[in-house]
């Protein structure tokens, strides 16, 4: 057994949708205070990994340890209680709840900690003015802020974010990512899925890349070369890696 108790430790994680296997033995270790970025092409299994971690997808006999306890196979609401919250893919706000209700409902688990409605409004001042609006009567960026705030309201020790920049303009993405260091400063570790590799590299202290349900690369951002990442991401050596790069930056 490992001598030191890691914050989050996943061993040989597999996941299935019916007969279809989406994950093939993922290993991952994360320390408290880390911001881990998960990158990978569409369909690589990134969201599936988070869904298994939160208990939304059943995981039988897997070994997932979080803060010293085995959480695999536990019902999702207990995993949430243990301190893992998620900002799901596509935000999934509750349309018939107001902004403030959407935020408050995140606190259903009643964990104590630094986050409260006031703290969220301080983090995202835009939301305060619109707190009585319908949750889905906001811009995409504001909705994303509500989704992040809703997850924070449970005072998680680990915050999982699934593509929080998807479909947003560069300026809004920048706004949202300025929140990341502030969240980290309050003692929340983060695991973020990010398609935008440059963005991922900028915020992360550690990076892993998934490819077809397997970990194809992991390390510290500063130790990884662009060629390595490209290979891990696409599964082959790009002929002219530079033709991809500028295109992404133009977006």
């Amino acid at each position: 057994m490992t001598p030191h108790n890691a914050f989050l430790e996943i061993r040989n994680l597999t996941a299935f949708y019916g007969d279809f296997q989406a994950l093939f033995g993922i290993d991952l270790t994360m320390d408290e205070g880390d911001t881990m970025a998960v990158i990978g092409a569409n369909g690589a299994g990134k969201s599936t990994m988070l869904r298994t971690l939160t208990g939304l997808l059943p995981s039988k006999g897997q070994n997932i340890r979080f803060a010293g306890a085995a959480i695999a196979g536990q019902p999702a609401h207990l995993i949430h209680k243990a301190g893992i919250a998620m900002v799901p893919e596509g935000r999934r706000l509750f349309p018939s709840l107001t902004v403030e209700e959407n935020l408050s409902i995140g606190a259903s688990g009643k964990r104590k900690g630094p986050w409260s409605l006031a703290a969220i409004y301080e983090l995202f001042p835009d939301l305060h003015d619109r707190r009585h609006h319908g949750g889905t009567a906001l811009s995409g960026g504001q909705q994303q802020m509500v989704a992040i705030g809703r997850a924070l309201m449970s005072n998680p020790r680990l915050l999982l974010c699934d593509e929080i920049s998807l479909g947003l303009s560069p300026k809004v993405i920048k706004d949202i990512y300025t929140a990341v260091p502030l969240i980290r400063a309050r003692g929340t570790s983060m695991l973020v899925i990010e398609q935008d590799i440059a963005q991922a590299m900028a915020v992360a202290t550690r990076v892993i890349c998934l490819q077809e349900g397997r970990v194809s690369l992991s390390g510290r951002p500063e130790d990884l070369s662009r060629a390595e990442i490209t290979r891990a991401y696409f599964g082959f050596e790009a002929d002219e890696p530079d033709t991809n790069e500028p295109a992404r930056e133009m977006l």
Partner: peptide
């Protein structure tokens, strides 16, 4: 609205 999300709220 979305029953699947309820456990993620701790319910």
């Amino acid at each position: 609205d979305d029953a699947e999300m309820v456990p993620l709220m701790g319910g």
